[in-house]
Design a protein around this nucleic acid. Sequence first.
DNA 1: AATGTTATGTTATATTATATCATCATTTAA
DNA 2: TTAAATGATGATATAATATAACATAACATT
Lengths: 144, 144
Amino acid sequence: MADREKHPNTPRITKNARLVLDILRQVGQPLTAYEVLDRIRPQGITAPTTVYRALERLVECGLIHRLETLNAFVSCGREEVHGPSAIAICTDCHGVIEMQNDAVPGYLYGWAETKDFTVTSLTIEILGQCSQCRIKPEPNVDSE
Amino acid sequence: MADREKHPNTPRITKNARLVLDILRQVGQPLTAYEVLDRIRPQGITAPTTVYRALERLVECGLIHRLETLNAFVSCGREEVHGPSAIAICTDCHGVIEMQNDAVPGYLYGWAETKDFTVTSLTIEILGQCSQCRIKPEPNVDSE
DNA sequence: AATGTTATGTTATATTATATCATCATTTAA
DNA sequence: TTAAATGATGATATAATATAACATAACATT
């Protein structure tokens, strides 16, 4: 409630949004909408629409990120995110590293401005391999 | 052919890739795979698979970009692209502006390195409104 | 010609996302 | 206190995006 007072233009966190947020926080990794749905079924949620609505709300609240390159959603590293961030995603373990530095967004906004382009959203995603997974590569099933 | 000599690890441009590339170049705007399919049907192509294969090849060749935020594909502004670029996409007219500057990718690579993260791909997309569309807004259907 | 390799064709299906409309809950205002 | 308005949820259907799997064709090499 304090949240709402501080950020009155932000949608409130409804019952379903709460359920979805808890799942994403508990997992700590990106999940697709349907993966969320599978985990939320025990709570009586059966329709994709329901999950998508909750996810959309949470994105608007800045509590989760949508990862365009994975078609998935992940809870923010910090409690809440303000302004755009860059996200590195390990394609092996699906771990996520967030960068909250303003430098890159700042630069991109600046560039957009020179093109007389009005920015409404910024997506910066980096796919690759985290240090853990480089050291200890995916256990290969048929490595004879 | 000179191309293949210069970039031997790049897939060659096959018949279908050629067809798709020509369409994307002619249109000059992002198209979804199925929009490409519609325009390529007259050439006897009927299956999504065929289009996706061609698109994948063209992305590998660096001749087109995949736009993650639109699930669409657009031919490169330049003949061919080397290294990652930032792309601004107008949500009104779907026009695309490419930035080929190395600064941002360089910064992001640097950041990834500090996290000991090995980058395999970089996606930078900016959604918003181009100057044209800000001046002359979308003709609103029911503006009474 | 036999073989291997790459590209293409064909069918089916998986995955991701939205539209639509009905119902329920909560607030607002008469 | 009810009526109206608004916002959230539920339920069903379907749209839009993408891939799997396997068959055939084209082409190069031997």
